[in-house]
Simulated scan of single mutants.
Amino acid sequence: MRWFNQKQNAVLSIDISTAAVKLLELSRAGARYRVESYAVAPLPQDAVIDKNISNVNVIAETVKVALRQSGTKLKEATVAVAGSSVMTKIITMDASLSEDEMEEQIMIEADQYVPYSLDEVNFDFEVQRVNESNPEMVDVLLAASRKENVENRVEALAKAGLKTRIVDVEAFAMENAFSLLAEQFPDSSEGQTVAILDIGASMTSLNVLHDYRTVYTREQAFGGKQLTEEIQRRYGLSYEEAGLAKRHGGLPDNYTVDVLDPFKRAIVQQIQRSLQFFYSSSANRTIDRMILAGGCASIAGIEQLVEKSMGMPVYVANPFANMTLSSKVKPHTLSNDAPAMMIACGLGLRSFD
């Protein structure tokens, strides 16, 4: 399974998260990207637990729904595994080795790096840069994941009629998508440290990038599901009804003060906790700006609240800001979903590497 360095024609991006299957089809003309089609199809509870697929058939059916909604004709796709299920390691290798020789050497030495039997893992590698302390060596990124994490995704896509062409890692896809956001800032992100908080349905992932490269990632169990469950409990709704009410409104007047505001404060606490872990693990590195991604980033006013408590500039992710849209795509709907489409976007850019 190749994860890196495949030059491709356009492929569909399929992001399988806890709450939904997100599909995106991008094309490029010159330097500009265009959204050809996209869809977000909700998943039932427990189809994905802690980023692991627990029911391949349910995922396949939901991918089919997204394919129908989007109207895409593409049959090849790229998908990502969660960072928590991937082990990455930087190893140094002789710069004069060819790619095949590197692969051979990694295979021989892999049991030093990977805590599983080799027939249980998929892995790939990518040369990153010349080693700082020895110019005759290169730093090589090795990524390994248990085969079941990869195979479940490939199988779900196959059952939906798609061939998987690339399996990526969510943190790398997020890093890729950051290049689209960096263009939107008033000043350059070179040399800056940027925190991206992806607050999904059940997981919050912190990705810290320094100079456009990921230097730290951490996942913790917290997300929009807590808000849905509180709406469900408070107003006697089913989980599905609570999810719809959360997105489309129609809840009693006391909802904002009694339910939404406490949840927004809980988001701020989670962000503070995530950053605390980062600061304690990192040698005196400060964060220059923060980006909120994931479904919870669409909550009205959340960035102002976070900015006020963190004392740094905070932006809501919109990877589509500088893209053109095909006539099939409704601008308003896409802009509502944009913060949750970062991983799908990062996967989509792989077609144009």
Rank of each mutant, 00 (worst) to 15 (best):
residue 2 R to W: 11
residue 4 F to D: 05
residue 5 N to H: 13
residue 12 L to T: 05
residue 12 L to Y: 07
residue 13 S to V: 02
residue 14 I to H: 08
residue 19 A to L: 07
residue 25 E to S: 11
residue 26 L to F: 11
residue 32 R to W: 12
residue 33 Y to K: 09
residue 34 R to N: 09
residue 34 R to K: 11
residue 35 V to H: 01
residue 37 S to N: 12
residue 40 V to G: 07
residue 41 A to H: 13
residue 47 A to N: 03
residue 53 I to G: 01
residue 53 I to L: 05
residue 56 V to Q: 11
residue 65 V to G: 07
residue 71 G to P: 01
residue 71 G to C: 15
residue 75 K to H: 14
residue 77 A to I: 10
residue 78 T to W: 07
residue 82 A to T: 04
residue 84 S to I: 14
residue 84 S to H: 14
residue 91 I to K: 00
residue 93 M to E: 13
residue 95 A to S: 13
residue 95 A to D: 11
residue 99 E to L: 02
residue 103 E to L: 14
residue 107 M to C: 02
residue 108 I to F: 03
residue 111 D to A: 15
residue 115 P to Q: 11
residue 120 E to P: 06
residue 120 E to G: 08
residue 121 V to E: 12
residue 123 F to E: 05
residue 125 F to R: 10
residue 127 V to L: 11
residue 128 Q to R: 15
residue 129 R to C: 08
residue 130 V to R: 15
residue 131 N to R: 12
residue 132 E to C: 12
residue 138 V to Q: 06
residue 141 L to E: 12
residue 141 L to Y: 04
residue 149 N to E: 15
residue 152 N to T: 08
residue 158 A to W: 01
residue 158 A to H: 02
residue 163 K to A: 08
residue 166 I to V: 00
residue 168 D to N: 03
residue 168 D to G: 02
residue 174 M to V: 03
residue 179 S to R: 10
residue 179 S to G: 03
residue 180 L to Y: 08
residue 184 Q to W: 03
residue 184 Q to C: 02
residue 184 Q to R: 04
residue 192 Q to W: 09
residue 195 A to H: 00
residue 196 I to G: 00
residue 199 I to K: 09
residue 203 M to Q: 03
residue 206 L to Y: 00
residue 213 R to W: 08
residue 218 R to F: 01
residue 220 Q to M: 14
residue 225 K to R: 15
residue 230 E to S: 03
residue 232 Q to N: 10
residue 233 R to C: 05
residue 238 S to K: 05
residue 239 Y to A: 11
residue 242 A to V: 04
residue 244 L to P: 00
residue 244 L to R: 15
residue 246 K to M: 06
residue 255 Y to S: 01
residue 257 V to L: 15
residue 259 V to P: 05
residue 261 D to F: 13
residue 264 K to I: 04
residue 270 Q to V: 06
residue 274 S to C: 00
residue 278 F to M: 02
residue 279 Y to H: 03
residue 280 S to E: 14
residue 283 A to R: 14
residue 283 A to I: 04
residue 286 T to K: 15
residue 287 I to H: 01
residue 287 I to Y: 06
residue 289 R to L: 05
residue 290 M to E: 07
residue 291 I to E: 02
residue 293 A to N: 00
residue 298 S to F: 13
residue 299 I to M: 04
residue 300 A to F: 12
residue 301 G to P: 06
residue 303 E to T: 10
residue 303 E to R: 14
residue 304 Q to H: 15
residue 306 V to C: 04
residue 308 K to G: 01
residue 308 K to I: 07
residue 309 S to L: 09
residue 313 P to A: 00
residue 315 Y to M: 09
residue 317 A to T: 05
residue 318 N to M: 10
residue 322 N to W: 10
residue 323 M to C: 10
residue 326 S to K: 09
residue 327 S to K: 15
residue 328 K to G: 10
residue 329 V to G: 10
residue 337 D to V: 12
residue 342 M to H: 08
residue 352 F to E: 03
